[in-house]
């Protein structure tokens, strides 16, 4: 399905989500405030987006940007779902009730960024040991064991 058709379809079913839809770099993107994430995600799932492909976060300085990519097999379309949470209090509702696929991916984001997913059934570190300090993929992560690569270029 082309993006214009997707937008029309989305706007006809959920008019309130329509202004949040944009096209960024050729991909349909739905940017929602953090408190509306769960309901928007639920709407997307009900619209037929049955696969949660990717879930990750990006450190944007003051905020963390959460990026979800959901996909519909039926419509053969994919959409980005984006939201931002403040750095000093990163909390976001968990999407495990909607897509169980989010389980491990949310744990990974928690492990790497320290973002707390409220309602997650088992939020623990997944890749790093349980006693690890800090969240490595944050840009301000400091660890004296890291040796910085010399700048050759």
């Amino acid at each position: 399905m082309r993006i214009e058709e997707l937008r029309e379809h989305l706007c006809s079913v959920y008019p309130d989500l329509c202004p949040l839809f944009s096209v960024e770099f050729g991909d349909g993107t739905l940017t929602v405030p953090a408190d509306r994430l769960f309901s928007a995600a639920q709407d997307m799932r009900d619209l037929g987006f049955d696969l949660l492909g990717m879930l990750t976060a990006v450190d944007r300085g003051e905020t963390f940007e959460l990026v979800y990519r959901v996909r519909s097999r039926e419509m053969s379309a994919a959409i980005f779902l984006k939201t931002e949470v403040p750095r000093d209090e990163p909390r976001i509702p968990s999407l495990v009730p909607l897509w169980p696929a989010a389980d491990w991916q949310e744990r990974e984001v928690y492990d790497m960024f320290g973002i707390v997913f409220e309602g997650h059934p088992d939020l623990r570190r997944i890749l790093l040991p349980d006693d690890w300090e800090g969240y490595p993929l944050r840009k301000d992560y400091a660890d004296e064991r890291i040796i910085r690569r010399p700048d050759y270029i």
Partner: peptide
């Protein structure tokens, strides 16, 4: 292999 010898490609920039 280089990783077991010295860390190899994972010598720099990694925390783990």
């Amino acid at each position: 292999g280089n990783c077991a010898v010295s860390g190899g490609i994972f010598y720099y920039d990694t925390y783990s």
